[in-house]
Amino acid sequence: MNSGTQMQFLRYLLMGQSPATLLDSMDAADIAQIYDFIWEKALEIGIRVKGEHFSQADMLKRLKTAEQYKLETGCKEPLQRCIANECILLNADCVRKKYDDQLDRLYRLIADYLGIEYRM
């Protein structure tokens, strides 16, 4: 993942802008990488905004668990495969859909923390 792309996602995060348009041109593997990067930045922002009241558990509550996602999609694969993105080569669209949704939730959450309007 190049620095320019990371910077673009971070800029959108700080501006309350949905990352949907940025995700359109990316493949599932890149989206999974950018999710890890944005999760780390979201934690940093959460800690800076909430201070000692910060709770990672509260953040996780706003996201969808792999178990929930599997139930919704009717997937019969073992849960661990979904958590580890093992299906990325066989079913990239599913992995992509999972992260598109998680990123949208994460960006909404950070917009809430920052007290800014979330724009689609």
Binding site: L14, I45, R48, V49
Partner: peptide, 8 residues
């Protein structure tokens, strides 16, 4: 900025 300075 609409976000607090301590954030950035």
């Amino acid at each position: 900025m609409t976000i607090d300075r301590s954030v950035y």
